[in-house]
Design a protein around this nucleic acid. Structure first.
Length: 306
DNA sequence: ACAAGCGACGC
DNA sequence: CCAGCTTCGCTTGT
C-alpha cells in the first residue's frame, strides 16, 4: 500500500507554481485565485501572489497536456487582469518552484521527470525550497554547495545534523523526490501585528499605548472574518532581534477588544519582568481561531439551557 | 492531547 | 532590502 501510493506520487504528479510578476492588490489577487481554482485540480495559495497547483488527474500525467493547460491559464490571467505570470511545471513542488524562479518574468519552464536530475544537479543547494540561511550555512560547513553534492551526502550525517525529518527532506528534495502534496488552501489560523517602538522600553503602559493601533487592527481582522481567538500572545523583540513571547489561552474563545487590551497589558507586565530587558519591537498575536457565529450560538444555547 | 515558548523559512 | 506577517516544526511540560 505505501509502495503503490508512493509510486503513484512519484510518477503521477505535476504540481506547478505560478507567480505573478506584478504584486500588490489583494483584491485582484483574490479574484485571480478564485479563477484559478476553477482551472486546476487543486490550488494551494502560498502567498498573496503565489500558489502551487496540481494538474495530475486532469492531464493523466501528460506533460504536453499540462503545458497547454498552463499556457491557457497564463493567457486567462493576462486577458482578465493584464498580469503576466511565471510558471514552473515539474514532478515535485520544489522542482516546480525552481522552474518558476527560472522562468520569470512571464515564462513557463517545464522540467520533465526524466530531466529532473540533470536539471537539479548544478543548482545551488541554498535555492532549494525550505533551505534558508541557517541550513545553507550548515551545508557549507559540510562542504556542500550544489544540489548534486547534496545528493551525494551521507544520509546518516544529514540526519545527525538536521534531524530525521528535515534531513530526509533535504535528501528527497535534492533528487526531486520530495513528495509533499498540493493541498487545498486553509483558513488563516492566526492574526498578528508587530510595531517598532519609538524608544526601547518594557513599560506595559507605554507598550499598550504604542501597540494600540495594532490591537485595533487585529480586532478588525477578527471581526471582518467573524472569528474568535482562544490564545493571545504578547510578542517582544529584543535589541539583538531575538523574540520573547508570553501567551495565555482562554477557556472560551472571545473576540472582544476590551479583553484583548486587558490581556495584552498583563501579558506584557509578565513578559517584561521575566525578560528583564527592554523591547525594541512589540506585537500582539491571536490564534486558535474559530468562527464567532458558531461559538456565539453555542453560548446562547448553553445560557438558554440553564 | 493541549499549552507554551522558540526558531527557521518564505513571501 | 527590509519590515511585517504567516506557517510549521521542535521541545518541554502538564
Amino acid at each position: 500500500m505505501p509502495i503503490a501510493q508512493a509510486k503513484r506520487k512519484l510518477e503521477g504528479r505535476d504540481p506547478a507554481i505560478i507567480r505573478m510578476d506584478h504584486e500588490k492588490y489583494e483584491v485582484i489577487s483574490a479574484r485571480i485565485m478564485d479563477a484559478l481554482e476553477n482551472m486546476v485540480d487543486t490550488l494551494e495559495p502560498t502567498g498573496i501572489d503565489e500558489a502551487f497547483f496540481d494538474l495530475t488527474a486532469s492531464t493523466t500525467g501528460d506533460y504536453a497536456k499540462a503545458r497547454e493547460r498552463v499556457a491557457s491559464i497564463k493567457k486567462a490571467i493576462f486577458d482578465d487582469e493584464y498580469l503576466t505570470s511565471s510558471v514552473g511545471l515539474g514532478r515535485s513542488k520544489a522542482v516546480a518552484k525552481l522552474g518558476s524562479d527560472m522562468s520569470k518574468p512571464n515564462g513557463l519552464t517545464v522540467v520533465l521527470p526524466e530531466e529532473t536530475a540533470k536539471f537539479l544537479a548544478p543548482i545551488p543547494a541554498s535555492k532549494l525550497y525550505g533551505v534558508g540561511p541557517k541550513t545553507s550555512a550548515s551545508l557549507t560547513e559540510m562542504g556542500i554547495s550544489t544540489v548534486a553534492e547534496l545528493t551525494m551526502a551521507e544520509p546518516a550525517e544529514l540526519e545527525r545534523r538536521f534531524g530525521r525529518k528535515f534531513g530526509g527532506y533535504l535528501l528527497a528534495v535534492a533528487t526531486g523526490m520530495d513528495d509533499g502534496k498540493v493541498t487545498k488552501g486553509l483558513e488563516p489560523t492566526q492574526f498578528s501585528r508587530i510595531v517598532t517602538l519609538k524608544q526601547d522600553t518594557r513599560d506595559p503602559k507605554e507598550i499598550l499605548d504604542q501597540l494600540s493601533g495594532g490591537i485595533d487592527y487585529v480586532h478588525e481582522k477578527l471581526a471582518a472574518s467573524s472569528r474568535s481567538f482562544k490564545t493571545i500572545t504578547a510578542i517582544g523583540v529584543l535589541i539583538d532581534l531575538s523574540t520573547r513571547t508570553k501567551s495565555r489561552s482562554l477557556e472560551t474563545p472571545l473576540d472582544d477588544p476590551t479583553t484583548l487590551r486587558g490581556s495584552i497589558l498583563s501579558l506584557f507586565e509578565e513578559l517584561g519582568k521575566s525578560t528583564g530587558k527592554d523591547f525594541r519591537r512589540v506585537g500582539i498575536r491571536v490564534s486558535g481561531l474559530s468562527a464567532t457565529g458558531t461559538q456565539g450560538s453555542l453560548n446562547e444555547f448553553l445560557r438558554l439551557a440553564r
